[in-house]
């Protein structure tokens, strides 16, 4: 850890600053230098100014067996098209060695944990961000699913409020307010069985009870409220 005085100017001729400058990542999908050269040249013809002087980080993660990584050739190849390779990230140990031989620094040293150790999340488990509410949501209460969906198996009284970043499902009677897509997710929906809500809202677009009264819905069906063309629509499934 650098001491604070080194990070400040303090009369020196230079200073270090943390920064994220934009640069391109070149993911190698097929390590055939001839094909890469040909395709790069084609791209450069279509957009000649696109590559001009751009810095590039080479990422060999997509290919597994490229142990004899020929970074020297690749480096020259990129330079010839006006790209400036500044380093390599995400390679395995022999690839890193090859990169260093070619004079390219390895940029993934900050992330010490190898990717293989990351525990895989089983796909069939419910996301933890989904909230399940089984007790009645009474007047004055608010149930909030900050990141995911909100599922309510009981009734929601008038004066109660449901807020979710994702979808809202209500299996009892919905009499209160329901605000789905609270963080601006326009694909969020509200599902309920009887629509007596005071207000429904998706990503900030809303319908009040008065406005909903004019929309015909058959009783005791499943109702979906969704956003389309900046307008809320109600349909029965």
């Amino acid at each position: 850890m650098l001491e604070r005085k080194w990070l400040q100017n303090n009369g020196r001729s230079f200073r270090f600053k943390a920064s994220f400058s934009p640069c391109l990542i070149l993911e190698i999908i097929q390590p055939d230098m001839q094909i890469i050269q040909k395709e790069l040249a084609e791209l450069a013809q279509h957009a000649p100014r696109f590559f001009n002087g751009s810095s590039v980080i080479i990422d060999p993660q997509k290919i597994s067996g490229w142990d004899k990584a020929d970074y020297e050739t690749l480096k020259q190849l990129l330079l010839s098209q006006g790209l400036v390779p500044i380093g390599v990230r995400g390679g395995n140990a022999p690839q890193e060695e090859a990169a260093q031989l070619a004079g390219l620094p390895c940029l993934n040293t900050g992330k010490s944990a190898p990717l293989e150790i990351v525990p895989a999340v089983p796909e069939n488990t419910l996301r933890e961000t989904t909230r399940l509410v089984t007790s009645p949501v009474r007047s004055g209460m608010q149930q909030h699913a900050r990141e995911g969906d909100l599922i309510v198996t009981s009734s929601v009284s008038a004066g109660a409020e449901l807020v979710a970043a994702g979808h809202i499902h209500v299996y009892g009677v919905l009499r209160g307010r329901a605000l789905a897509g609270a963080n601006g997710n326009k694909d969020a929906c509200i599902f309920c069985r009887t629509l007596e809500a005071e207000l429904v809202s998706i990503a900030g677009y809303y319908l009040t009870k008065e406005e909903m009264a004019s929309i015909p819905t058959t009783p005791s069906s499943i109702i979906q409220i969704y956003l389309q063309n900046e307008e809320l629509h109600i349909r029965t499934l």
């Binding site: 007790s135 009645p136 949501v137 009474r138 007047s139 004055g140 209460m141 009284s157 008038a158 004066g159 109660a160």
Partner: peptide, 13 residues
């Protein structure tokens, strides 16, 4: 009825 509903919410929390 609305106020009673509110009270029931408080009783539960």
């Amino acid at each position: 009825v609305r106020d009673s509903d509110r009270i029931l919410g408080l009783l539960a929390s």
